[in-house]
Design a protein around this nucleic acid. Structure first.
Lengths: 123, 123
DNA sequence: GTAACTGGTTTCCTTTAGGTAAGTACTATA
DNA sequence: TATAGTACTTACCTAAAGGAAACCAGTTAC
């Protein structure tokens, strides 16, 4: 028999403070594209049209807006190189790496949830 | 000097499969009320108007819709008791407890992000 | 001169989330 | 008879997200 950490149901006190935190976190990650963009730029810095090529369904309007949002929240750094024509590089900041645990847990849970949904479809 | 787990930047392979997982997870948690409702019902089972009393700003229309969504995703169980008038109890399922890690990470990250935003406001 | 490349912006439109207020069906109580 | 409580539903409205298509400014290559 394994010794298991006590997996108690969270207490009211534990929950009380955390809802605001959670809503704050979801607020900055909201929208259809933010996490896709962060994951893409964590892989490698990219230019505007390189991102469009990778994330084909995003429109330039929405991409520009999302990149501005991400820059404001310090997830992405925008650097202008005065070549001709100008080169603008977007790259993930170190701060965006603090999302690693969040992203991992969301990914793990999302995967097992999809498996579960598939199972219940078969019945 | 502490020995630290290797904190490598996630590889392309690690990211490739996870975006879909993450979007699936965020899809079932989306909206303004879902996590608040789950946290409330994890504390204790409740009736419709008890939830309204706790989460005062939610309208009956939206509450009914959110509870249906949560029931469909197996986060919440709805039980009808044929008293007069009928009593309907909503309670969190065991499955909703699988969200514990996700909720903890979102809360931890959200809290430190708010602290960071506060700091940068002072400058 | 004109086409093409850069990194966007502008305009217009549709979809969706969510809010407000009122209504509904049933029963019990005064 | 009327009011109140239960658990919702319905109709209508607003705001915001996002999509499609066109446009723009600057420079260089043909």
């Amino acid at each position: 028999m394994k010794t298991i950490e006590k997996e108690a149901i969270p207490t009211t006190e534990e929950c009380a403070g955390s809802l605001r935190n959670i809503l704050d976190a979801l607020y900055v990650l909201n929208g259809k594209w933010k996490i896709a963009l962060i994951l893409s730029l964590v892989q490698s810095p990219k230019r505007f049209n390189e991102i469009r090529k990778e994330i084909t369904k995003i429109s330039p309007k929405v991409l520009a807006k999302e990149l501005k949002d991400l820059e404001l929240n310090d997830f992405v750094k925008r650097t202008v190189y005065l070549t001709t024509p100008v080169t603008i590089i977007y790259e993930a900041t170190d701060y965006s790496l603090t999302l690693k645990s969040v992203i991992r847990e969301l990914s793990v849970w999302g995967e097992q949830h999809r498996e579960k949904v598939k199972q219940s479809m078969r019945k």
